[in-house]
């Protein structure tokens, strides 16, 4: 099931990563941490699934989507945070499975759009990126209500 490698940084690397703004290599560690955490709680998320088809695969779909994103990011590692986020978002989009996966891929799309062109990420930009992804998601969710069809 686990197709990702756990690439924990060494003590010295961790110290360096903590002291400096987030670059591409730090970002991919965060993506991996997110994937590991989601995989750990996969069954819990599966149990939440009731809508629209209660077949209990929400967690599995989300994990598969994240795995696709991580695999793509892992194959094209870069020091540039914006590029890294973009690669991850592209992988997640291509590997999106089910409703939850599609929604998750949109979250990453919004996130990567906010990071575009930034080589490093600081706290302020991270906050902005998180806010951007929420806005994009809500925009897409309610697009239908405003649609002139």
């Amino acid at each position: 099931m686990k197709s990702f490698s756990t690439t924990l940084p060494s003590e010295a690397d961790r110290h360096r990563l903590l002291k400096s703004p987030l670059t591409g290599e730090g970002l991919i560690l965060l993506f991996e941490a997110g994937l590991v955490w989601l995989t750990t709680n996969q069954e819990y998320v599966n149990a939440l699934n009731v809508f629209p088809v209660p077949d209990g695969d929400t967690g599995t779909n989300m994990v598969l989507t994240m795995q696709a994103g991580f695999a793509e990011a892992d194959s094209k590692r870069s020091k540039h945070a914006g590029d890294m986020a973009k690669t991850f978002a592209h992988g997640a989009l291509m590997g999106a499975r089910g409703n939850s996966g599609v929604i998750l891929s949109q979250i990453w799309r919004g996130f990567s759009r906010a990071l575009e062109g930034h080589a490093t990420v600081d706290a302020a930009l991270l906050v902005k990126a998180c806010r951007a992804r929420a806005t994009l998601l809500i925009g897409a969710l309610f697009a239908r209500l405003k649609a002139p069809f």
Binding site: R97, G98, V102, S105, Q106, R109, A140, A143
Partner: peptide
């Protein structure tokens, strides 16, 4: 919606 993977949407 533009920007999503059509296969994923149609599958669901």
């Amino acid at each position: 919606e533009y920007g999503l993977r059509i296969k994923s949407v149609t599958d669901s």
